[in-house]
Design a binder for these strands. Structure first.
Lengths: 328, 328
DNA sequence: TTGTAGGCGTTATCAA
DNA sequence: TTGATAACGCCTACAA
C-alpha cells in the first residue's frame, strides 16, 4: 500500500496538498490536482483508514452486536440497518457474542476506542446498568429486545400489547383451551408477552390450559410439547408459541406424536421469520417489522452520532398478526 | 477515554513506562508498576486500538465476508472460525456484501489498511483475478465455495465427488427416475455437483429425469418443481436438490400440489443446515462439515498471518450422506 | 529500571 | 494556492 507521502513525492507536492485533493478537491489548482490524481492512480493509492481515524476520531462505521448468526430474525433487521446506514455512507460491521459478557465487552470497547462511531445492540449480555453507562459514553441503540431502563434508546415492538391482541383474537375465534409456550423471564420480551397473554385470558375468565418456560428455540418447542403431553390428557385448542422456532419445534414434535396441525390443534408463532412462510404447514404468527426495526435503530444511532436530537428514547413499532395454515 | 499520557502523569512516570507495564510488565520495577496499575484503574484506562494498530500494523482481528446473514449454513461455519480464532486470541468481525462488488471492495480495503490482519471470504463477489491479487497482498482464505484458481487458499468439500456418491447411492437404492435441481453455473459448486451427478447417472446408463437451474433458494425449489410438473406427466423417484433451502422449497411446493414426501417422491437436500433436522419431514441431505470448514479456514488464515507455512492451497473436507425422513 | 524521542498515516492550522 | 508542522495515541530503539 502506497502512502500519502509517496503520492506527494511522485506528484512533487506536499502531503497537505494530496490530502486536500482527497477531501476538498476544489481548494487546489486544477493543474496540481491532476498531477496528484495521476500519482494516486499510478500508485493505486488508497487512504489509510487508521491514520485518518486517529486524526478525526470518526470512522463512518457502525457495529452491530448479535447473540448469534443462526437467528433468521436478525437477517432482516440487518437489512434495515444497512439500508439506513448506506443513506449516509456508513458501513456496518457485525460481531457475535454467543451470550458471553466478556466477548460483548471486547466488542463494545471498539466504541470507546473510536474504531466505530456507534453501536446497535441486540444481544443483552451484560447487566443493564453497564449498558446504560455505555450508552452515556457513546452512541448506542438497543434493538429488537426491550430493555427496562427508560434512558437507553431502544427500538422494538410492544410485546405486551401484541400478545394481548393475539390471545384476544384466538378467543374471538372460539379457542378456549390455550397453551402458552414462552421463555419465562429469560428475556424481558418473554415476560411482557406472557403478561399480555395472561391479561387477555383473565379478561375472558379463562385460565391458561398449560404454560411452559422452556425458551425461544426449536428444541424448547419439542420439550414443552412433551412436557404438556405428559401433564395433560388432551390437546388444547391452540398453542401460542413466543417464537417461530419454538412453534416449528412444537409442530415437529406434534407430528412425531401423530397429531396434525391445524386439524388437531392450532399453533401460532411469533416473529414472522423467513421459516414461517416456508414451513409446512406455513405458520400463523405475530409479525415483527424486522426491516423497520433495523432501519429505525440505525436512524436513531446515526442521529446521535451526528449530534442531532432524538425525540424520545423508546420506539415501539407496529406488529401484525399474519394468518397462515397452522391455525384453523 | 483516558489516554496513556494521563495515566503517566497521574503515576508520575513517562508514557514509555506505562506502555511497558501493559506489554511487558516484568520489565518494570514492582513499585512503579503498582503505581501505574493504580493510575490505570483509577482512570479506567483502556489502550486505544487505533494508536496501537497504527504503530504495530497488527490488530488481532480477522474479517469474515459473507453474502448474507440469512443463510443458516454460515452460522455453523462462523462457530468454527470463532473457535479457532479464540485459541490465538483473535476476534472476528463479520461484513455482509449482498453480492455487491463495491461493498466487497469496501470491506476488503480493511485488509490493505491493516484494520484487520486477515480475511475469510465466503462471498465471491468480484472476479477471481481480483481475489487472487488480494490474496497475494494480504492473508486471505476462501471458504465454503470452491474457486477455480489453484493459487488461492480454499477450504470446502469435494462437490463433484459428493454429488457423484449421492446419485450412485440413490441408484443403488433402486431410484431410476432422478431429477436434479441445481443452480446452473451461478455457483462453481453447483456446476461441480451437476458434473458429479451426471457422471453417476451416465455410468449407470441413465439420463436425468429432469434438470433445473433455478438456484439454491427456497423459491428456486418451488419454481423448479412447478416447471417440472408442467413438463412431465409423472413424478420422478427422487429429486436431488443442490441445497437444503431448495429442497424444502420443493417439498413445500409438492405439498401444495397434494403430493407426499417420501411416499410419492423422495427429496434429497445438500448442506445439512439446521432446518434439515427441523423440517417435517426431516431432510435426507449431503452434510458439509460446516464447523470444520470454518475451523480449518481460520487455521489457515492465522498461519498465514503469523508467517507460518501452509502445506497446500486446497482443502477438501469430508462430506457425508445423512439419512432422514424425506427419502424412502 | 526508566525516560527521550521518532514515527506509524492522516488532517488541520497557520504562514508563506 | 500551497507547504511546513503539529497533533491523534501508541510502541520501541536508544540513551541515561
Amino acid at each position: 500500500m502506497a502512502t500519502m507521502k509517496e503520492v506527494a513525492d511522485l506528484a512533487n507536492v506536499s502531503v497537505a496538498t494530496v490530502s486536500r485533493v482527497i477531501s476538498s478537491p476544489d481548494s487546489v489548482r486544477k493543474e496540481t490536482r491532476e498531477r496528484v490524481l495521476n500519482a494516486i492512480s499510478a500508485l493505486h493509492y488508497q487512504p489509510n483508514y487508521l491514520g485518518r481515524t486517529l486524526r478525526l476520531m470518526k470512522t463512518k462505521r457502525i457495529l452491530v452486536i448479535l447473540h448469534t448468526l443462526s437467528n433468521q430474525f436478525f437477517s432482516r433487521v440487518m437489512r434495515g440497518i444497512e439500508d439506513r446506514a448506506r443513506e449516509d455512507h456508513y458501513s456496518v460491521l457485525v460481531s457475535v457474542t454467543r451470550g458471553n459478557a466478556e466477548t460483548f465487552r471486547d466488542y463494545a470497547r471498539m466504541l470507546q476506542t473510536h474504531e466505530v462511531d456507534g453501536c446497535i445492540i441486540t444481544s443483552l449480555d451484560v447487566p443493564e446498568a453497564e449498558l446504560l453507562k455505555l450508552s452515556q459514553e457513546a452512541p448506542v441503540v438497543c434493538a429488537c429486545e426491550p430493555v427496562k431502563s427508560r434512558r437507553i434508546p431502544v427500538v422494538s415492538i410492544d410485546d405486551e400489547a401484541a400478545a394481548y391482541e393475539t390471545v384476544s383474537f384466538l378467543i374471538s375465534k372460539g379457542k378456549k383451551k390455550i397453551a402458552l409456550f414462552g421463555a419465562g423471564d429469560l428475556y424481558y420480551s418473554s415476560s411482557l408477552r406472557l403478561k399480555g397473554a395472561l391479561h387477555a385470558l383473565r379478561e375472558n375468565g379463562i385460565t391458561p390450559f398449560y404454560q411452559s418456560d422452556e425458551g425461544y428455540s426449536f428444541r424448547s418447542g419439542s420439550r414443552a410439547l412433551s412436557a404438556m403431553l405428559l401433564a395433560k390428557a388432551e390437546l388444547p385448542d391452540a398453542i401460542f408459541c413466543f417464537s417461530d422456532s419454538c412453534a416449528i419445534g412444537t409442530i415437529s414434535a406434534l407430528d412425531s406424536h401423530g397429531f396434525k396441525v391445524p386439524q388437531d390443534v392450532s399453533v401460532i408463532g411469533f416473529d414472522n421469520t423467513a421459516i414461517s412462510e416456508m414451513f409446512v404447514p406455513s405458520l400463523t404468527t405475530v409479525a415483527q417489522p424486522q426491516h423497520a426495526i433495523g432501519y429505525k435503530a440505525a436512524d436513531l444511532l446515526i442521529r446521535q452520532i451526528e449530534g442531532k436530537p432524538i425525540e424520545k428514547k423508546r420506539y415501539a413499532l407496529q406488529h401484525e398478526i399474519i394468518l397462515r395454515d397452522s391455525m384453523s
